[in-house]
Simulated assay, not measured.
Amino acid sequence: MDVIELLEAADLLVPESVATENDLTVNDVWDHLVHDEWEAALTLLEELRGGPPLPPAFWESLAGAATQLRLERSRAWCYWRLSESRHGVIRADLTLRPATESRRTTPVPGAGVLQAMWNIGHRSPAGEMSVSIAWLWVEDRPALEPGGRALVRLAPLTPSHWRHLRPGHRITMHEDRTVAGTATIVETGPPYAGL
Rank of each mutant, 00 (worst) to 15 (best):
R163P: 02
A193P: 02
H122W: 14
L154H: 14
L165P: 06
T100V: 08
T105D: 11
R153I: 04
R149H: 12
L12Q: 08
L33C: 07
P159A: 10
D93P: 04
L45I: 00
P167G: 07
P125V: 00
D31S: 03
E21A: 15
V18L: 13
R123G: 11
H122R: 06
R149F: 07
S102Q: 10
A183E: 11
M173E: 06
A111N: 14
A66T: 01
T95N: 09
L62N: 07
E72S: 09
V89R: 15
V131Y: 11
L136S: 02
V89Y: 01
R97G: 07
V18S: 15
N22I: 00
L157Y: 06
R75Q: 12
A150K: 03
I90Q: 04
S124R: 04
G112S: 08
G50P: 01
P53E: 14
S85M: 09
W137N: 09
L24Q: 04
L6E: 05
R123Q: 08
V26S: 08
E128Q: 12
L69V: 03
A183H: 05
A9I: 08
L42H: 01
P146V: 08
G121P: 00
S130K: 11
Y192L: 00
E84P: 03
L94P: 08
R177K: 05
V131L: 06
W118Y: 10
E46M: 06
T158N: 13
D140E: 15
D11W: 01
E101Q: 13
A155Y: 03
E175I: 01
G147P: 14
E37T: 00
M1I: 07
R97F: 12
W137L: 11
H35E: 14
R166Q: 15
A10Q: 11
I185H: 14
L48M: 07
A134Q: 03
P142M: 13
L94V: 12
R49C: 09
P159Q: 14
E39M: 12
V3M: 12
R163L: 11
D28E: 15
T182P: 03
I120M: 04
V26P: 00
I133H: 12
T178W: 06
S130H: 10
R177M: 03
L69E: 15
P156G: 10
T43D: 11
D31Y: 03
W38M: 01
D28Q: 07
W80H: 13
A99F: 02
A76M: 10
E8I: 07
L165W: 10
A111E: 05
A193G: 12
N119F: 12
G50F: 01
A126F: 02
R49S: 13
G181L: 12
S124I: 03
W137Y: 11
E139G: 01
N27D: 14
E175S: 08
G51K: 01
I185Q: 08
E8R: 04
G112E: 11
P55A: 09
A57L: 00
L42Q: 00
T182L: 04
Q115F: 02
D36G: 09
